[in-house]
């Protein structure tokens, strides 16, 4: 059992591997984050979740998303003037980078950014920057989907996320998890006919057409991957979810459990 105080309130935990952020949030203490996601490992890139940790005579500023709660008696402050200043500066940086993004604008004004003191990132006329480089897309692809179809490229101010060599990613299964976790809407997915296009990755995915109703519904190349990963019956992936349900209802009791095949009605 470890006992600490957060903003003066005493909190006890016996959970091993719990981080300060998790503990604070579970106690209803809000700490802003941009690069944290509960399904992913802590990354520590946005630095919004910084808190002040005091143990003995020393106070240090750490990112709470990754800081393990294991020292008994430490006292944590989550909203001191210093921390507010840091968060405000970070949002000023992000606002200068992505001035058009509503989410960034809202967060910036919420964290006290009143005037624009920094010049906006210079880009070619017809372009706007939408990515804050939180890395959620890269990490969800690697850690959850297990694919690593996209990655960070270049470094420093040139850093961006891309598919290998900026062209069609061979590893992309078209799952669009990256689009789902993106906090700024920078990852755009368009569908037309049996094609799905994920714009920042220059990646085009062919969708499977339902054998029964003829609509396009799921990425073709994810079929095999999911089948192997989840052990799904091959026929199952040839039908769209609606038709699948329909078949399931109609074939109730006709499912062959040994071969795990549904006897399809032609």
């Amino acid at each position: 059992m470890v006992s600490i105080t957060i903003n003066g309130r005493e909190i006890k935990t016996d959970q091993e591997d719990i981080t300060l952020l998790q503990l604070a949030r579970s106690e209803g203490i809000g700490i802003p984050t941009l690069c944290f996601h509960k399904a992913l490992l802590p990354y520590g890139a946005c630095r919004l979740c910084v808190v002040e940790v005091t143990g003995g005579q020393n106070t240090k500023i750490v990112n709470s998303c990754a800081y393990p709660v294991r020292e008994d008696g430490i006292s944590v402050q989550t909203n001191t003037p210093k921390l507010k200043q840091i968060r405000k500066n970070i949002l000023e940086f992000l606002l200068a980078r992505c001035p058009e993004i509503d989410m960034v604008k809202k967060m910036a004004s919420g964290l006290g950014v009143k005037e624009k003191r920094l010049p906006e990132k210079s880009l070619p006329e017809d372009q706007t920057e939408e990515c804050i480089l939180c890395g959620l897309c890269v990490r969800v692809c690697g850690e959850v989907i297990g694919k690593e179809a996209i990655s960070f490229v270049h470094r420093g101010a040139e850093r961006e996320v891309a598919a290998p060599f900026y062209s069609q990613s061979k590893d992309c299964v078209g799952c669009t998890a990256c689009h789902f976790v993106c906090p700024t809407g920078a990852i755009k997915v368009k569908e037309s006919g049996n094609k799905r296009f994920i714009s920042p990755w220059n990646t085009e995915i062919t969708l499977v057409t339902c054998e029964m109703c003829g609509i396009s519904f799921a990425p073709e190349n994810s079929g095999e991957y999911l089948q192997a990963k989840l052990g799904l019956p091959a026929e199952w992936l040839k039908l769209c979810p609606q038709c699948r349900r329909k078949v399931a209802a109609e074939t109730m009791g006709k499912y062959d459990f040994t071969s795990r095949n549904v006897i399809l009605k032609k």
């Binding site: 940086f93 200068a96 480089l133 420093g156």
Partner: peptide, 15 residues
């Protein structure tokens, strides 16, 4: 030489 991972170093340094 900044790797560009965290905001203060990447953006702050640039500004």
């Amino acid at each position: 030489e900044s790797c560009g991972k965290c905001v203060p170093c990447r953006e702050g340094g640039e500004h």
